[in-house]
Amino acid sequence: MSSSKRITVKEINDQLKQVHSLDDERLKNWVQDDRKGVQLAISKTIKRLQTAEKQQQAFRQRFTYEQSFWHKGINYVAGIDEVGRGPLAGPVVSAAVILPSDFDLIAVNDSKQLSKVTRELLAPQIKQEALAYGFGVIDNQIIDEVNIYEATKLAMRAAVNDLNITPQQLIIDAMSIDMAIPELSLIKADAKSISVSAASILAKVYRDQMMSEYDQQYPEYEFAHNDGYGTKAHLKALAEFGVTPIHRRSFKPVMDALNIK
């Protein structure tokens, strides 16, 4: 106790920021300090460490499927995910990612759980750490020809074929893509598999960038904000300005707009 009294609350606060384990001796010593400021700092530190541990556990849990394959000597496991099934305009985009066993980007999770800023920060880091990554892009014309489900499968196959390493195993988000590679289809795989999580981020960032470029060509539709989804502003623009070359003519709101025009 006496040693803790010799330093100020601010000094303890500063040192607690460097504590990364609940077993840290400084934490154990200062928990007995009866100063209100110290107790508040201890409480915040414990909460921070507990939150970090939960995040670390969840991160490790997302390696479960990959590790089961790695333990069998299957080293190249590709996670595959897509983005863009629901929009009225633009392509469907898929990404495939093969990660190393020491992948350590703890923030990587289902892209839908992350902010745009976080996804854009993570995407280049994923590319840096990945053993391989690839993309598949299927445009609106093919979507109209084959339907969105088949177009999604085409995008996923294209992403696998774009990898510079041939995967030995695929983990896919709720799809079967019928390639000559063993595949594991998981519902909500983007939240269960770290490889699929990484793929979901890359696919989302890639497609968002494409839609931002389309926004420059067709600013009336606000593609940079709605990514081609049928928002109120997008539907209003369809009724007012008609259908662009990137709209999916087989989707009902676009068909309705064509009838209006």
Score class of each variant (00 low, 15 high):
D104Y: 12
Y133F: 15
S68V: 02
S195A: 15
T231N: 00
F63Q: 08
Q61K: 13
S68L: 03
F63L: 14
I177N: 10
V160Y: 05
M210T: 09
F103Q: 09
M175N: 07
K28E: 07
S43H: 13
D139Y: 13
G86E: 02
Q18G: 05
S197I: 10
Q128M: 03
D178Q: 12
R26C: 02
L49Y: 03
A180I: 00
M179V: 15
E129H: 14
N147T: 11
P253D: 13
L114F: 10
S195T: 08
A132K: 05
F223D: 04
R62D: 05
E66G: 08
L22Q: 12
T231L: 03
G84Q: 07
S250G: 12
A237H: 07
S68G: 00
L40M: 14
S101R: 12
Y218S: 02
E120H: 07
K127E: 14
E222S: 03
S43F: 11
V77C: 07
I201D: 00
E129Q: 15
I143S: 02
R62Q: 10
G228V: 02
H20Q: 07
I74D: 02
K112A: 04
G136F: 04
L131I: 12
K261F: 13
Q18E: 14
V117D: 07
R207K: 06
D144C: 02
T8F: 07
L49I: 10
F223K: 05
Q50M: 13
E150W: 08
Q18T: 14
D144I: 02
L40T: 14
N226K: 06
V160S: 03
I7G: 08
D173Y: 02
R157N: 07
W70S: 05
K44L: 11
G228R: 01
L114H: 00
H247N: 13
A41Y: 09
E145W: 05
M211V: 11
L122G: 01
I177V: 15
D102R: 06
A239T: 10
P100Y: 11
V38S: 07
D110H: 08
N161S: 11
K204W: 04
L99C: 07
I148L: 03
S197W: 00
D215R: 05
E129P: 00
G79M: 02
A198F: 12
M255D: 06
A96C: 09
A123M: 14
S2Y: 13
I7D: 08
M210E: 01
K204C: 10
I74M: 04
T51K: 15
V83M: 09
K36D: 05
V9D: 13
D139A: 09
N29L: 15
L88D: 04
L154C: 07
K36A: 14
K188E: 12
I12R: 00
V93P: 11
